[in-house]
Amino acid sequence: MNARYFLLVASLSMAAWMLAPLAAAQSSEQNRYYIQQMIELATTNDDHGVTTTQRVLEQSPKPASADPSGARAASQRGLAALEQNELETALRAFQQASQADPGNVEAVNYLGLIYRKLNRFQEAENALQQALALEPTRAVAWFQLAQVYGLQNDARRALGALANTYRFAQNPMRAEEILRNIAENEAADTLRNAALETLRLYRLPVEAVIVPPLPANPGIAPLNVPPGSVRAPSIRPAP
């Protein structure tokens, strides 16, 4: 009897252990679905729909922290590296931080930011969606996600993400001015147009540019830099 019971418990534990990643993956897929829903609903300014989906996301299970103090230390290293613009070092540090504490929204958000700065858009999108699954009203993550979509010429999703940036902004007037700044000065067409559309969506005043702004740096690099290694002009800093 004892042996049987032991076997049952062991097999259930084994099954749970084997299925855990599947469940996590399912949950992650679900979260992505809800975030995409929030984006889609935001493009039509469906307030009720966005709020409902946001609440569903807020109630989804959050990952447990394995090593919060280790995560904090890694985050500190990451921030220091980021300040020095050492993106690869910062990336490794925030990867460690988010693995040690997958529920640390700051670390996951920074991970997304660094991926975006490195033009690794798919990974940036994943990390930012993960941050938004943890905190669906995090305006700065919505803003960075909008940049990711804008730089990939995904106009509709850039609009939805910017609309949520404004919706969840702590200071709407500041967000409004940031949007106007992008709508008038951003060189990337998709992002600029998305900002313009967001302001129009919320019936906020904006002046559409006649001549779009040109990139501040059309590939200028020191003469000793090998051809092809020049990075695309970076977009304006996140708020």
Partner: peptide, 11 residues
């Protein structure tokens, strides 16, 4: 003091 979560114009 920090401003409360801002409501959007849509709200």
């Amino acid at each position: 003091t920090a401003l409360a979560d801002a409501a959007s114009a849509g709200k």
